[in-house]
């Protein structure tokens, strides 16, 4: 797929994120929009997967460590035909398979693992990679993490173990948007020098603009060709990307749009395509 085709898919995913959050009346809009391009790149370009056969044993695994951006996972899965797009409107509602944070209990196709308590996903991904190594399987394990999440010490326990076991099949993606609930990551708890930290833990570090398909494509290609080290893609994204009026505004980390705002946001996305 060409970058411009991917961009159209990403915009449609953004529109469904907005619709599902407006219908839910709560949820995390900013990070979900910011990651729409990363998810599109993953599911429509990079991943080895079969939406009609979600438990295919050779599939690449995706662990959403930052469970709160479930809306972007759900919308991407629906657009990949894991389940009907209409189901996105049940987000966060009683008896829905689309729980506020991904749940394996509801058996939503495409959800590998329940997540939402920060700092646990990379450990689970390390365990999955270890199993792949034991079984001599060559599928890849992608773990999507937040930048604020990296303040959890357990992430670094996991990082240390991934390089100890030369987990070249493991690809962590850090959503580097400098935003977390209390504000800018620089103010809440400094993460820099972030690249040096990952390097010091023995990882292959790749940086890219996480809202640019040319750069994302190159970053994933690099990560996939690693010969020994685990890989981290630090994807610089803009929280709220695609909706100009809220881009970069951390107040939209944990908020859902009203129906009126949703209408306005969707129009901003559509008009940017002209």
């Amino acid at each position: 797929m060409t970058p411009s085709q991917l961009r159209i898919i990403a915009d449609n995913i953004r529109i469904d994120i907005i619709k599902s959050l407006a219908a839910a009346g709560s949820g995390h809009l900013g990070g979900s929009l910011g990651l729409a391009d990363v998810f599109t790149q993953l599911y429509f370009q990079t991943l080895k997967h079969r939406p009609a056969e979600p438990n295919w044993s050779d599939r690449d695994r995706v662990i959403l460590s930052i469970g709160h951006v479930a809306p972007v996972l759900y919308a991407t899965l629906a657009h990949s035909l894991y389940f009907p797009i209409e189901e996105l409107l049940t987000l966060r509602k009683l008896n829905s398979r689309l729980q506020g944070h991904p749940s394996r209990e509801t058996a939503l196709p495409g959800v590998e693992v329940s997540s939402g308590s920060l700092g646990q996903g990379l450990s689970v991904a390390v365990g999955m990679t270890l199993a792949a190594q034991i079984d001599k399987m060559d599928y890849r394990i992608f773990c999507i993490m937040g930048d604020g999440e990296l303040q959890e010490g357990s992430c670094w326990e996991a990082a240390m173990s991934a390089s100890h076991y030369n987990m070249k099949q493991l690809i962590a993606i850090v959503d580097r948007n400098y935003c977390q609930i209390d504000g800018n990551t620089n103010d809440v708890m400094e993460l820099e020098p972030l690249i040096d930290k990952w390097k010091a833990f023995g990882w292959n570090v790749i940086q890219c603009n996480g809202n640019d398909f040319d750069e994302l494509g190159m970053a994933f290609t690099k990560a996939i060709s690693s010969i020994k080290k685990p890989n981290v893609i630090i994807a610089n994204t803009i929280m709220g990307k695609g909706v100009k009026s809220i881009e970069g505004n951390y107040h939209w980390h944990g908020k859902a749009p009203t129906l009126l705002e949703a209408d306005n946001f969707i129009r901003q996305i559509l008009s940017s395509q002209l």
């Binding site: 689970v124 365990g127 173990s161």
Partner: peptide, 16 residues
């Protein structure tokens, strides 16, 4: 690194 161990156990169990 006990916290990591539990997560790793989960990843292993998810892989049979």
């Amino acid at each position: 690194a006990e916290q990591n161990c539990i997560g790793v156990a989960a990843g292993l169990a998810l892989s049979d």
